[in-house]
């Protein structure tokens, strides 16, 4: 019984159960919901959330109240830059990815330096950076939507490539593999967990915590910028607040995936499941054909229910 309880409160098991239940509910509500084509579409949307959540997960695992609220603005920036560099040309896709990812990486590094060198709390630093990037977006775009995706990029993200799955899912799988490898098989990964659990101890063990943490924020920026490229590939064009809707879902995917906001625990595989569960939930709510307020209510209630099952903080003890 005790073993059963422990198994049931294991984040990976919970997230998987949530996915199965949601698939069942979706299939019950509208037969065909759990079919291949529909699942591929849901996975594609999950991939976009999953990519930005990868960076968010790194920052959170790194500890010291790590969080990156600038990812939404960075996604918008990535989409805008990529759209303008490509402007519908297939030949320019690679330079678009380079420009969007590179710029977002540099801005992420600035976040990291603010957090490590000036020691600004991450929430404040990335919140302030969000304001700066949003201002930059207005300057760059002059308030007018501009740039559009290259046809090949749209095909890569929306159309089946192999086994009925679009190319972006393979990119996501590669990212997941890379995350697993970095976190579990390299010295850097162990340094990140050590730092997240106890920064002082990690530093005394020779981890260059400032450098590692700065890199984490840089990687979060990079992932957000690349997510921006995917977003413009998904929709074809962008507007300057296109990324805002991803900020808190990326944090929630991380939490549902079993990563504690206190840092030092969890892995990316849970976050993958968290991103899928979150996207499925939104998709099921859309199928319900409820009014918007009803969807909001259920979404909020289910999130709270999931958090109740885990993601709770420790009880105070005497």
């Amino acid at each position: 019984m005790e073993r059963f309880r422990r198994l049931l409160t294991e984040p990976l098991v919970l997230a998987s159960l949530a996915i199965l239940v949601l698939l069942g509910v979706g299939e019950f509500l509208s037969p065909g919901f759990a079919r291949g084509g529909q699942i591929a579409r849901i996975l594609t949307v999950s991939a976009i959330l999953g990519l930005v959540s990868a960076g968010q997960a790194l920052v959170v695992i790194g500890g010291r109240e790590g969080i990156d609220l600038s990812v939404g603005a960075l996604i918008s920036l990535g989409a805008l830059v990529a759209g303008n560099v490509m402007s519908g040309e297939n030949g320019a896709i690679f330079s678009a990815i380079l420009a969007a990812g590179g710029l977002a990486f540099v801005i992420g590094l600035v976040n990291g330096m603010g957090v490590t060198l000036v020691r600004i709390p991450p929430l404040v630093m990335t919140l302030g950076m969000m304001g700066v990037i949003q201002g930059g977006l207005v300057v760059l775009s002059r308030g007018i939507p501009s740039g559009n995706a290259a046809p090949a990029l749209m095909t890569f993200i929306n159309r089946p490539l192999v086994f009925g799955l679009p190319g972006v899912l393979f990119v996501w799988a590669l990212v997941a593999l890379a995350m697993w490898f970095i976190l579990r098989r390299t010295a850097l990964g162990y340094a990140i967990y050590a730092m997240g659990a106890n920064e002082r101890a990690a530093r005394l063990c020779g981890v260059r915590t400032g450098l590692v943490r700065t890199l984490l924020y840089g990687l979060s920026g990079l992932m957000a910028g690349l997510t921006g490229v995917c977003v413009i590939g998904y929709t074809g064009n962008s507007f300057i607040s296109v990324g805002d809707q991803y900020v808190l879902p990326s944090v929630i995917a991380v939490v549902i995936g079993g990563v504690s906001l206190a840092g030092g625990t969890g892995g990316y595989f849970g976050v993958v499941l968290g991103a899928i569960a979150l996207t499925l939930l939104q998709s099921v709510l859309t199928t319900l054909q409820l009014e918007f307020w009803g969807r909001q209510l259920i979404f909020g209630a289910v999130l709270l229910g999931l958090m109740l099952l885990y993601g709770r903080t420790k009880r105070l003890r005497v």
């Binding site: 808190l248 944090v251 999130l303």
Partner: peptide, 9 residues
């Protein structure tokens, strides 16, 4: 519950 995510929900 964790304050940031709980109050967001």
């Amino acid at each position: 519950l964790q304050p940031i995510v709980a109050t967001f929900a």
